[in-house]
Computed example of a mutant assay.
Amino acid sequence: MSRPPRKTRSIRVEDKLWNAAAKTADECGDVLAEVVRASLQDYVAAARRGDAQTWTFFGHWEDELVIDHAVRGEHEDVYPDDGTYEQGLWAASARGATLEEAEANARAEYKPDGD
């Protein structure tokens, strides 16, 4: 059985993440390129099925929650609070079939009771 042709791709990945993934793949007896390829296949399949996905939202407070950006997956908040926003920074993860649904779920966790 022949494989479809493959091309070399370039992506930007933080050294810490790449090194941890390479070490884990090696410890598990996997090839990192195969792990990346399988992750991409899972990502596409889940999106096509409409499976709930986890998103992490980053933002700040201005009497209400302001979301500055979102990334797929669950991530730690590594942004230092430099005092730019008087009411502070905010980050949370939530699941949803779409980005919008996940955002609504994240916001719902921070609404006062009765709103």
Rank of each mutant, 00 (worst) to 15 (best):
I11A: 15
A97G: 15
T8L: 12
A94I: 12
E62W: 12
H75D: 03
A21G: 11
F57M: 06
A91Q: 06
L40M: 11
M1K: 14
R12N: 14
N19R: 04
P4M: 11
E76G: 11
D77L: 11
V13P: 00
V13S: 02
Y43W: 14
D51L: 13
L99W: 01
V66A: 04
P4L: 08
D82Q: 15
F57T: 07
L40W: 11
T56H: 02
G88D: 02
A106F: 11
T98I: 08
K23C: 04
V78E: 11
A52C: 04
K16N: 03
K16P: 00
T24M: 06
Q53G: 00
E101A: 08
H75A: 05
R49Y: 03
A97T: 15
S10T: 15
A45C: 05
A20Y: 00
A46P: 00
D30K: 10
V44Q: 01
G50I: 05
A25V: 10
R72Q: 12
E101K: 04
D113F: 05
R12A: 09
Y79M: 10
E64H: 13
I11T: 11
D68K: 07
D82Y: 13
A47K: 09
M1Y: 11
V66Q: 12
F58G: 13
R48G: 07
V71A: 08
E34Y: 00
E64R: 08
D30Q: 08
H69N: 13
A52W: 02
A33H: 06
A33K: 07
L89R: 12
H69S: 13
A21K: 03
K16S: 04
G73Y: 02
V36E: 00
T24E: 12
G73I: 03
D15W: 01
L17R: 09
K16Q: 09
K111S: 13
A22C: 11
L32W: 08
V66G: 01
G73R: 05
G88V: 06
R95M: 14
A92F: 01
A94M: 14
A38S: 09
A45S: 06
R48E: 13
E100F: 02
V13Q: 05
V44P: 01
V78Q: 11
A102C: 02
G88W: 03
D77Q: 15
D15G: 03
A47D: 07
A91D: 06
T56Q: 03
W55G: 00
R49E: 14
L40P: 01
G59P: 09
V31K: 12
V31Y: 09
T8A: 05
Y43T: 09
D15S: 13
A70L: 03
L99N: 00
Q87Y: 06
R6I: 04
G114T: 10
A106S: 14
D77C: 13
T54W: 04
D81Y: 08
A91P: 02
A104P: 03
G114D: 08
A97P: 14
G96I: 00
Y79N: 10
W90P: 01
D30T: 03
V31I: 11
E27C: 05
E109N: 10
L32M: 09
G88I: 04
G59M: 11
D30L: 14
A102W: 00
G29M: 07
A106L: 13
A38Y: 08
D113V: 12
R6A: 08
D82E: 14
N105D: 10
S39M: 03
